[in-house]
């Protein structure tokens, strides 16, 4: 009971601190401090409740034992990370986004293709494509190639739709200007359409980071070699060692955030001129 009381006390104190901080003068520090305090508070509340109410670790392990498991199984986690993220997600992401980008540029030249493909692309982007996983596992085998294939299909259409939209996003004056210069197709593409499309392209790239990771992990539920984040999650769940599952989820969360963050950083450097990126 002591644990529960302590946890709640801590929670109340932290709530008060956060309200105080949030309603005070806002600085860079408070903007980082407030969400961090909130996160830490949740972890401590979690730890306190699990210990105080003695919840079985089979249901919900406390953060401390997850951290311990994380620290002691680094080699396994690293191997899974390489298998799923580096081999499956990243290669699929590059192939899928690259193919969608090139398709978009080809499609952009033909109004007919654009009007034909955009509605289909929008439609497919809303479908549960992850269901293709068992078929692709059947076609490409258990190893990372089938995971990359799932990722390719998942990221292709969102990326295609965003890029095609972006390539049409110049304003009328900018387009007329190119006409008055008698610019060629390639000059137009390189100097106007592509730079103007960059905010849309990066929007697509950011959406696809999450999709890539989801695709690579869930595809492993349908069959995989004996490593990989999805494989580990499904087998360790079966063995009810949930601390390992949580450790693996932590890796997935870190990888996802880092992946997204990297793309967002590149975006900031490339589209520094866009109103949303200027301060």
């Amino acid at each position: 009971m002591k644990w529960v009381l302590l946890a709640f006390l801590f929670w109340l104190v932290m709530c008060a601190v956060n309200v105080r901080l949030a309603n005070g003068v806002q600085t860079r520090l408070t903007r980082v401090l407030v969400p961090t305090l909130f996160g830490v508070t949740l972890l401590i509340l979690w730890e306190g409740l699990v210990r105080g109410l003695s919840i079985s670790p089979i249901l919900l392990p406390p953060p401390s034992s997850i951290a311990l498991r994380f620290a002691t199984s680094l080699p396994i986690l690293w191997g899974d990370f390489v298998q799923t993220f580096i081999k499956g997600a990243i290669s699929g992401y590059i192939i899928g986004c690259g193919a969608a980008f090139l398709t978009a540029i080809a499609v952009d030249r033909s109004d007919f293709l654009k009007r034909g493909l955009l509605p289909i692309g929008n439609f497919v982007a809303a479908l549960p494509i992850i269901g293709m996983a068992p078929i692709l596992v059947m076609w490409f085998g258990f190893d990372w190639q089938s995971k990359a294939a799932v990722v390719v299909i998942m990221v292709f259409f969102p990326m295609l739709v965003n890029t095609v939209t972006g390539l049409g996003a110049q304003d009328v004056i900018q387009r007329d200007l190119m006409n008055t210069y008698g610019a060629s197709y390639w000059q137009r593409l390189m100097k106007l359409s592509l730079p103007a499309a960059m905010p849309f392209i990066f929007n697509g790239l950011k959406i696809c980071t999450t999709l890539a990771l989801i695709g690579a992990i869930v595809a492993e539920f349908f069959g995989s070699p004996i490593r990989g984040m999805g494989f580990r999650i499904s087998t360790e769940v079966g063995r009810l060692s949930l601390d390992m599952v949580w450790a693996e989820i932590t890796v997935a969360a870190l990888a996802g955030t880092a992946f997204y963050g990297t793309v967002a950083l590149i975006e900031k450097a490339v589209t520094f001129w866009h109103p949303s990126q200027r301060n």
């Binding site: 999450t210 499904s234 989820i249």
Partner: peptide
Amino acid sequence: QTIPILAVAPMIIVV
């Protein structure tokens, strides 16, 4: 939004 939340699915079901 950047985390593959779907990975949690099997655990929720089993727990």
